Computed example of a mutant assay.
Amino acid sequence: MNKKIVIAGLLALFVIAGAGCASKQTAAPTAPAQETQTPAAPNTTPGQTTPDSTAQSAEHNGATQAPASPSTETANTKTGTEKSGDHQTEQITVYYTDTQENGLKEEKKEITYPSELEKYQKAFEALQKSGNSALVPLWSDKISVHKIKLDNGALTIDISLPDEARLGAGGEELAIDALKKMMFQFKEIKTLDLLVDGQAPESLMGHVDLEHPMSR
């Protein structure tokens, strides 16, 4: 009877031992699954995703192209296009005569010039063309100006005077008066000297004495 109990106890121990081994063998395969998850952990961590190489390339290209701004070049051109040409416009009185040479006739005109010396050049040119058939220029457009100089209020005009631009005694006197009135309207001019081809002639056209210089 005691032997049977002992044998039954041993069998029970073997059964328990066998069941324990079986449970260990079934639990063992779960270990490798944990190991495979370890290297994959960075992929599941927020903010650590692998950057897209295409996106990096696009960002790099965009950075290198950014300095080429067409609007900046346009602004510079407009700025280089805003600093150029500084002309002035002034209204002056110009003197002509009529078809019968009955004295001087006035007309208001506007001249545009970039500098003071150009102002006197433009004024002289206004004497040569009236734009009105009733007003006759006393200074022919065939007369050309060699040089104009202003020195401490003394204005010198050096001209060429072809024969076809010469007038009679009455016309010559009116021409000189027209030139004096024209130039002396500029307050900075104190004296006026008229030369012909660099020379100071006694008479401009052979009829009237010419002062050197003429004063107000």
Rank of each mutant, 00 (worst) to 15 (best):
S57L: 12
I7L: 15
S160W: 00
K3H: 14
V196S: 02
T30G: 08
Q100C: 07
I176N: 01
G153M: 02
K149P: 05
A8T: 15
P114T: 09
Q65E: 03
L204H: 03
E118C: 14
K187D: 10
N152P: 08
V208W: 00
D86A: 09
K3V: 05
L210W: 12
D141C: 02
P42M: 03
M214R: 09
Q88V: 07
E118A: 13
V6E: 15
K109W: 03
L104A: 11
K180I: 05
L167G: 03
H60E: 11
I176C: 08
N132C: 00
E35S: 05
N152T: 11
L174T: 09
S53R: 14
K147P: 04
L11H: 01
Q91E: 13
Q199P: 03
H60K: 13
N102M: 14
T79G: 14
D193A: 10
T89L: 06
S215L: 08
L13T: 11
V136N: 02
K147H: 13
K108F: 00
T191Q: 08
L13A: 07
L104Q: 08
Q25D: 12
K180V: 07
A19I: 11
L104S: 13
H146V: 02
T64C: 01
E202H: 00
V145K: 12
E90M: 05
P213T: 11
L138M: 08
A178F: 01
E188K: 02
Q199R: 11
I7V: 15
Q56D: 11
A19D: 02
Q199M: 06
T45Q: 03
